[in-house]
Design a protein around this nucleic acid. Structure first.
Lengths: 197, 197
DNA sequence: TAAGGTATGTCAGTCGCAGACATAAGAGAT
DNA sequence: ATCTCTTATGTCTGCGACTGACATACCTTA
């Protein structure tokens, strides 16, 4: 495919195309809105057909939700080698803190993406689904460490609430630090559940 | 529409049709699966056209998520007239307990519905969206009572996690009591942060 | 150079959903 | 009784999301 004017065949890796799809999609979504942008337009912008787009992404929403596996792997890794002594909720927050660099690295992509999601119901649904899946993964990881099912499930959901909230706040405020938001959320959770603080 | 053999015109209220849509949909979804059932089939089973179906429900999923407003109103009502002294999380659990009768009244509908959702990703997404919306409503209600934004948001999410979890467990186990699941969840979230219990 | 794998294009089809317009039934006014 | 106004429904048409089937051109490797 795609021949240069010199006749040299460009070997495009799949990853390359994936990223170009994502960039093109975010671009078009920002300009015209998610609903008003068709999959065919995204594909055209990248120079392929709509059919190819759907070979890379299960559906139109998914083009904005790709990094999730990497997030999961990173968090699960952190949990796996956390000190035994840590209580479940602390284990999670430790993982969140450790994830900070990767979060900051993707900030320039994540910020406009989040703004888009915040004004697009269809994308909010997908985001909630991803968060929920992540939460399930965290819960499973906690169970591996010996936490019982109910506690693991609720801890994971509470942790993810805090993580998601902190991340969004951080993206909204350019001059802020993610860690501060994590801490704020953690303190807040303590106050919610512990009477005398 | 729909004339009896005596020529008497039946005045069908909108509510009537709505419920028939819901029953027909649940029926077909159980038999053939959500994806394999078309909106046209649901409409046909009720005796109207597909177009009418979409005048009653914004989309195909929505037919299974109708009662949400009533749930919201009930919970918001409970929160509004809760004793001032209650802490936010207790306010929510009080509301959940008060909601018990309505929950039990709809059990026969809710149980197969939940099973269906649990095996259908598209429906899970919608359910998460509804839960999230409910959580936002609860948070707003707490803020009205003077709880600050962050605490209200996280409390609502924690509460909803517990509520959703308890409800699902209760539906799974025929011989159980919702209240017990609420209590279990409440004890569990306390243990998450309080060491000596 | 031949052969086999893989990414893409092409085509046709289904389904979810929405706009526009027609029609028929019931409610109220005269 | 008749007329009108409103409202629920049917009908028709079209778009966009997605999918299966098949063709084709590339890239690799023998």
């Amino acid at each position: 495919m795609s021949v240069t004017d010199k006749g040299v065949y460009l070997a495009k890796t799949s990853d390359d195309l994936r990223e170009r799809f994502q960039a093109a999609a975010l671009d078009l979504f920002q300009q015209y809105g998610y609903e008003q942008t068709t999959a065919a337009q995204i594909a055209a912008k990248v120079g392929v057909t709509e059919r190819t787009f759907f070979r890379y992404f299960a559906d139109k929403r998914e083009v904005l939700f790709d990094g999730e596996e990497r997030v999961r792997e990173a968090l699960l890794g952190s949990i796996a080698d956390a000190p035994e002594a840590l209580r479940p909720i602390q284990t999670l927050f430790r993982a969140f803190h450790a994830f900070r660099p990767e979060l900051e690295a993707r900030r320039f992509y994540a910020k406009p993406r989040q703004e888009l999601i915040s004004i697009t119901p269809a994308l909010q649904e997908r985001e909630l689904a991803k968060i929920s899946a992540l939460s399930d993964a965290l819960a499973a990881a906690l169970q591996v460490r010996g936490v019982e099912t109910l506690e693991a499930t609720l801890t994971a959901q509470i942790g993810m609430s805090a993580f998601a909230h902190a991340t969004i706040k951080w993206l909204e405020d350019d001059s802020s630090d993610v860690d501060e938001w994590f801490d704020l959320a953690y303190q807040s959770i303590r106050r919610i559940l512990v009477d005398n603080e």
